[in-house]
């Protein structure tokens, strides 16, 4: 069993502030962390390592500084880490990212052994799209199980995996054949704290680093800015909403309730809710 976990180093967007004077992002001092959804993917992979002896390879496309995040994954227990880093990758949107990530998994499979399962996070804190996972699955021609909140069973003999997919209105129990790609929610598990031997191993660890030149068959028109169909044309900070509070009064609670109900039903919210 060989599991690949896709991780991305991101600025902790929860700590990003907007400068009220300039309306721009204050990125200074915002720590770089492993996208926290991805850690839940890693944790699940490590549980398979603990229970069925799976081998776990972590991969990331990113700048050289992302080594730090990969080392954190090694500390938690991953066996190997690969950083795909090249200036030519810069400016990638989800389409270009999924291309490089998929190429990387292909190369990982060639060099470290066949891949049975890939974990991605639900989404990243900076990109926030959740599109890279499905993109990678498509390119590798794996079946994808997205928004997984529980892995029910992994049947090594029959090469199947059964999971709970989280949906707005319930939970879907789904089974598929390996190899497969799974994107995970935080409900899945609680990532472990690295052990001391893990931390010591990580401190001495150097991830494998690949650049474009390491991929014999890479199509340079599909990577980085050039390979990205989408472009950000502008960003802005939304005006805080002005609220004109209407105070409702009436002779009795019933009269007030009737008034409120009437207003609710004639509001935009009602049509959005499908009441009207």
């Amino acid at each position: 069993m060989h599991i690949v976990v896709c991780i991305k180093q991101v600025p902790d967007s929860r700590e990003i502030r907007i400068d009220p004077n300039t309306n721009t992002l204050v990125r200074q001092g915002v720590p770089a962390i492993v996208n926290y959804y991805d850690l839940h993917g890693l944790e699940e992979a490590l549980r398979f390592k603990d229970t069925v002896g799976a081998r776990v390879t972590v991969i990331s496309m990113g700048p050289p500084s992302a080594e730090k995040s990969l080392r954190q994954c090694i500390a938690m227990g991953a066996d190997e880490a690969v950083l795909v880093s090249d200036r030519a990758f810069a400016g990638a949107d989800t389409l270009a990212t999924s291309y490089v990530v998929a190429l990387t998994i292909e190369k990982v499979a060639q060099e470290f052994g066949i891949v049975d399962l890939v974990f991605c996070g639900k989404q990243t804190l900076d990109g926030d799209t959740g599109q890279v996972g499905p993109g990678v699955a498509c390119r590798l021609d794996y079946d994808q199980l997205t928004y997984v909140e529980k892995v029910v069973a992994l049947d090594e003999k029959n090469h199947t995996i059964t999971v709970h997919r989280h949906l707005e209105d319930g939970v879907e129990v789904v089974q598929t054949k390996l190899p497969a790609l799974i994107t995970v929610l935080t409900e899945l598990n609680k990532p472990r704290r690295a052990s001391l031997p893990g931390v010591l191993k990580a401190a001495q660890y150097k991830p494998v680093v690949w650049s474009t030149n390491d991929f014999a068959n890479i199509d340079r028109s599909k990577i980085g800015l050039k390979g990205s169909p989408t472009i950000v044309s502008k960003t802005w900070v939304p005006e805080p909403r002005k609220v004109n509070t209407e105070m409702i009064d009436g002779p009795s609670p019933e009269a007030i309730a009737a008034d409120v109900t009437k207003r609710l039903w004639s509001s935009e919210a009602a049509s959005r809710l499908g009441w009207a």
Binding site: R193, A194, S195, L196, P197, V199, L200
Partner: peptide, 9 residues
């Protein structure tokens, strides 16, 4: 001894 698992050094 550290506060991590298997934390003696």
């Amino acid at each position: 001894r550290t506060d991590r698992d298997e934390g003696d050094l």
